[in-house]
Write a protein that binds this DNA or RNA. Structure first.
Length: 349
DNA sequence: TTCCCGTACT
DNA sequence: AGTACGGGAA
């Protein structure tokens, strides 16, 4: 396989097929960084509107650094992997503390939330540093063209693919090349049923010639899903409700939600209500159960969540803060960042 | 239902 | 080295 031919073919393909995206053709490292954090584990179509919102609200790193975590999380709401949002704020503060934006792969790596891929992306796009990006697209393209069957989720695989990516990197124009190979993976050499018939290099592609398209890239690990049951209690009293902020670590870190009973095994709904009653320290006369929602099934990559919402009307409520509860007016609920699961329920209130 | 995608933490 | 972390599209 001639690497130069492959490089030339993908570069030519890119000039014709590249999408016009707002973070392309710019050199502002702040906007490039922002776009890359948003695009981690996220497809362009899903991330685009978030990028536009963020650039509009936070046009530069100083404005971002002075933002409040909850405001950033609110803007991030629905995008998933919420530690990215908290790391974004932390990194903005790292950057502001320094005199100028980190301007090399090595310096960029020191930023929170910036790993090997993102550091290479920013360094090449903003500064033309000749470092190869290796993202999911690059793994797929290289594995198929060159017939690399080393697992991409092993350390030897990561090393091997990085070496190949660097060997095929166009050092004269690393920025365009890195974007070209990723775009090629995102639009042409796609995971399922890639468009081989219109591919400019299918005659040279190992996977195409050896019927290995579906087998490459090879991945060994599958994350197992853990079942979890959540019983949220949505309390109402005097047009107010109770919410709390999730801890930074774990699922939906930093997001807000109704107080909940979160357990590994299903429990009868009256047991859940009894638990809620004791946690609220209320007696039988102080509340009535208005509604018990049919359990909703919510799936994350690593978790299967069965979630019940229990709506309670309180006639009396003594606020004690052993639970870090936040009492808010009902009409303020929409100002707090919440998970998709919470959002689905709230939108029907 | 299955698959996809980078970083941090342990 | 292995695993936690979300949401949407195929």
């Amino acid at each position: 396989m001639d690497r130069y031919n492959v490089q030339q073919a993908i570069s030519d393909w890119y000039q014709i097929n590249k999408r016009d995206l707002p973070w392309r053709g710019i050199s502002d490292p702040y906007k490039i960084w922002l776009s890359e954090i948003i695009l981690q584990q996220t497809r362009v179509n899903q991330g685009l509107s978030y990028y536009l919102k963020f650039v509009a609200v936070y046009p530069n790193v100083d404005s971002l650094a002075s933002a409040k975590e909850d405001d950033i999380l609110k803007l991030w709401q629905g995008l998933g992997y919420y530690s990215r949002a908290r790391n974004l704020l932390a990194a903005a503060n790292q950057i502001v503390k320094q005199k100028e934006f980190p301007a090399s792969y090595k310096e960029l790596l020191k930023l929170k939330g910036v790993g090997e891929y993102t550091a290479a992306a920013i360094a090449s796009f903003a500064y033309e540093e000749p470092v190869a990006v290796v993202d999911g697209n690059v793994y797929r393209v290289l594995a198929r063209i060159f017939g690399i069957s080393t697992a991409i989720d092993s350390s030897t695989g990561k090393k091997e693919f990085l070496e190949i990516a660097n060997s095929i990197l166009n050092k004269q124009d690393p920025s365009t090349w890195n974007q070209a190979i990723m775009e090629f993976g995102a639009l042409q050499c796609i995971p399922k049923s890639p468009n081989c018939s219109t591919c400019p290099i299918h005659t040279e592609c190992f996977a195409f010639n050896n019927d290995r398209i579906d087998a490459l890239p090879y991945k060994k690990g599958k994350t197992k899903q853990q079942v979890r049951h959540i019983y949220y209690y949505f309390t109402r009293f005097n047009e107010q409700t109770i919410i709390k902020k999730r801890p930074a670590k774990g699922v939906w870190g930093g997001l807000f939600e109704f107080p909940a009973l979160e357990v590994n095994h299903e429990i009868p709904i009256d047991k859940a209500i009894a638990h809620i009653k004791s946690e609220l320290e209320i007696s039988e006369d102080d509340f009535k159960v208005v509604l018990v929602q049919e359990p909703m099934k919510h799936i994350l990559s690593h978790r299967i969540i069965y979630c019940s919402f229990i709506e309670l009307e309180l006639t009396q409520f003594n606020y004690k803060n052993g639970h870090n509860w936040i009492v808010i007016p009902l009409n303020q609920l929409h100002n707090y960042p919440v998970s998709r699961l919470m959002e689905k329920y709230i939108s029907n209130i």
